[in-house]
Design a protein around this nucleic acid. Structure first.
Length: 704
DNA sequence: GTGCCTCGAGTTCC
DNA sequence: CTCGAGGCAC
């Protein structure tokens, strides 16, 4: 067709067809570039098509499609939404799946607070809306910004879109000077159906479920599109505040309602666990008639002073839990079992399924965990599924754990084909043929090929360029695969990445011979690689991909050793000394230490590390940051009975202020906090000349 | 030895 | 998101 006819000569019908063609083309290119990381057309051509699309849209605004490529930036962060750092982190919630989990939750809270089993402890219970969480910041009563949750630390700025939602006030009267309201943006069933019906009529794109519709609508680059989408909002929490909203969760929610926010009408106070369960059942019964999707019930300790005492674990508050409804399940046929080989050599079975819709998502793969799971046993050998094994050809039940990860939950023995054979888990690596062995006590079988195994090598490289490691822009998983298989310009070890430009030569001929690479993209890649020749120590350690050493452990090691030289010297020295130094680090035990020592003792690994380090300038780690508090860096011991807080709480407070808490008094103890009825520890402390303070002095010290 | 709590590693789909 | 297991406190 006349693809390149001048825009001003197009008839309306031609323009419509051309816009459709461009939308497909650009969408495919976008996906290839951003999702698969394998460009299918040169950047210049992509830009030209995009300009043409925009020109046609400008001339025929009425024809602009719902899925217009000008709206659908493939999401390179730079062109997308601005980032907003949350003043108070947006956490997720721990989950409870049955009454047992719920009783444990209550028991844990009582233990932490030192409350007896029969002491009163009220909770709020409210439906958990299945939408998109949003944080709204108001200053002096004006909406300043709206941010999505993102990773909890940093979200996306969707202020212009949020401001178009009717249930989100742009101005508040009588609100605290600073007020961050948190809640859920969602779409009601009726609105969702109407939206999809309209989209179907006009040939626009329809959404699979209300949650996707809400998420997609909130992330429109053009707020006018969001305005046309029927979104709703429930407030359920808050972030930064210049003054408290109330003394209890319920009072705070009432205050928010008074300020003009919608608060879910099914929110209740429950005085006992039995009341919580009764309210859960009631919400479950009413679920089909609510008119919007919910996926459980959230319980929170009502008393905000108690919430403050309970505080947070690493990613969740201790004072709240989400009681989830049973996940949707579906039956389908297991068409095959493939074995994937991971970075550490772990052989993981993946179920290939006859595609099936589970809760609004088409699922064709699912995890089968490991060898034991297929056979119907748990890691300790106890039977699960009454010991029924899973065979290719079986009819299996699939669900999405946490509404995300597809899993095979059960098998229908009645539907098993007569010729179905038990699955023979491979004892050699399907990728490299090396023996795959299972260490005693380990639940996974691992390929012993190490770097010989192409699957392990490529997974190691993917880890190397991943987000917490070298994070090289334009060099994602797909590109790593391509370079790994490239005979002209191979990348087989991390060091190869840093010699790419040199090996390709000044004309970049080899890279440009490859599909989708032009001058610009090649230059951009080399620039991105150069930017990482200077790398912080912790990123370097994490990037090595040593088993048991994740991001946290890498930070710990970097802070302990301070420099690459010190780290390397320790690990290449005598093994006993290395073991002693490593295990002395708080948070490093014998297993991780051995894993580190083994990695540096292996000749091939060691060579790869040395070659890599030669291309890099590894930055020293910052000296451990000493928290700014009276007890930072001190070692504390508690003894006797504390009356105003429990031991667990006191310990958490002390650690939050940078102190270490030990169990017994020694010469290294800086401070002993003696509660009522302190015994031998106090005597020992005095004998050692350790400062002893009472509970009141302790509370003064921490400013409580 | 037991019981948290966290971390690490593996997983899917958009 | 979940499971298993490492690390640590009791």
């Amino acid at each position: 067709m006349e693809a390149d006819r001048p825009v001003d000569k197009l008839t309306e019908a031609e323009a419509r067809a051309e816009l459709a063609r461009l939308a497909d083309l650009l969408d495919a290119a976008n996906r290839a570039y951003y999702q698969a990381d394998a460009p299918v057309m040169p950047d210049a051509e992509f830009d030209a098509l995009k300009r043409r699309n925009a020109a046609i849209e400008a001339r025929f605004p009425a024809l602009k499609r719902a899925d217009s490529p000008t709206e659908q930036v493939g999401a390179p962060p730079a062109e997308g939404f601005r980032k907003i750092r949350h003043a108070v982190r947006m956490l997720s919630l721990a989950n409870a799946f049955d009454e047992g989990d719920l009783r444990e939750f209550d028991a844990r809270i009582r233990r932490y607070l030192g409350l007896k089993d029969d002491a009163p402890l009220a909770y709020t219970a409210e439906p958990k809306i299945d939408g998109v969480s949003l944080s709204l910041r108001y200053e002096a009563g004006r909406l300043i910004h709206a941010a999505t949750r993102g990773d909890g630390e940093t979200g996306e700025d969707v202020t212009a879109n949020a401001a178009t939602i009717g249930e989100i006030p742009r101005r508040l009267t009588g609100a605290p000077d600073i007020l961050e309201v948190r809640g859920e943006v969602y779409m009601r069933h009726a609105d969702f159906q109407a939206l999809n019906a309209r989209a179907a009529e006009t040939g626009g794109r329809t959404f699979a479920n209300p949650r996707n519709a809400a998420a997609g609508s909130l992330r429109q680059l053009d707020p006018e599109i969001t305005r046309a989408r029927p979104l709703s909002f429930f407030a359920y929490s808050w972030g930064a505040l210049s003054e408290p909203l109330g003394a209890t969760q319920m009072a705070a929610l009432d205050r928010l309602r008074g300020l003009g926010f919608a608060v879910n009408p099914l929110t209740r106070i429950c005085a006992t666990l039995d009341e919580l369960i009764a309210h859960y059942r009631e919400i479950e019964t009413r679920r089909p008639d609510l008119g919007y999707d919910i996926d459980g019930v959230v319980y929170k300790v009502d008393d905000l002073a108690l919430q403050a005492r309970l505080g947070f674990r690493s990613t969740t508050p201790r004072w709240a839990i989400a009681h989830k409804f049973a996940a949707e399940t579906a039956w389908t046929v297991l068409e095959g079992i493939d074995i994937q080989v991971g970075r550490t050599g772990a052989l993981s079975p993946v179920a290939r399924l006859r595609p099936i819709n589970v809760g609004g998502v088409l699922v064709s793969n699912a995890t089968l965990h490991n060898e034991d799971y297929i056979e119907g046993r748990d890691s300790k050998g106890a039977p699960i599924r009454e010991g029924r094994d899973i065979r290719v050809g079986d009819r299996v039940k699939v669900y999405r754990a946490g509404d995300v990860i597809p899993k095979v939950a059960d098998v229908d023995l009645g539907a098993r084909p007569a010729d179905a054979q038990p699955f023979a888990f491979p004892e050699t690596c399907p990728e490299c043929g090396s023996p795959a062995v299972r260490e005693p006590g380990d639940s996974v079988r691992r390929c012993t090929g190490g770097l010989i195994c192409p699957a392990q090598a490529v997974e190691r490289l993917k880890h190397f360029v991943s987000r917490g490691a070298f994070d090289i822009e334009g060099l994602g998983a797909k590109q790593i695969e391509a370079f790994h298989n490239d005979d002209q310009l191979p990348v087989r070890t991390p060091a190869d990445i840093f010699t790419l430009e040199e090996r390709d030569g000044a004309n970049l001929t080899r890279l440009k011979n490859r599909m989708g690479w032009g001058e610009t993209s090649a230059r951009n890649l080399f620039r991105a690689i150069d930017e990482r020749r200077r790398i912080p120590l912790h990123r370097m350690i994490f990037a090595l991909g040593i088993r048991h050493v994740g991001e946290t452990a890498a930070q710990l090691l970097a802070r302990h050793f301070g420099s690459w030289r010190a780290f390397e010297t320790c690990l290449t020295g005598p093994a006993e000394e290395a073991m002693a130094e490593l295990t002395a680090i708080n948070g490093v035990g014998p297993v991780m230490a051995q894993s580190l020592i083994d990695a540096f003792a292996n000749e091939a690994e060691r060579r790869a590390i040395d070659e890599l380090a030669a291309h890099l300038e590894i930055e020293d780690a910052e000296a451990p940051r000493v928290a700014d508090s009276a007890i930072a860096g001190k070692t504390l011991v508690f003894t006797g009975t504390l009356t105003r807080m429990t031991r667990a709480e006191a310990k958490a407070r002390a650690e939050a202020l940078g102190a270490k808490v030990a169990g017994s008094v020694s010469a290294r103890t800086d401070l002993l906090v003696a509660g009522e009825g302190a015994g031998s520890k106090a005597g020992k402390a005095e004998a050692l000349g350790v400062t002893v303070i009472d509970e009141d002095a302790w509370l003064d010290l921490i400013g409580a």
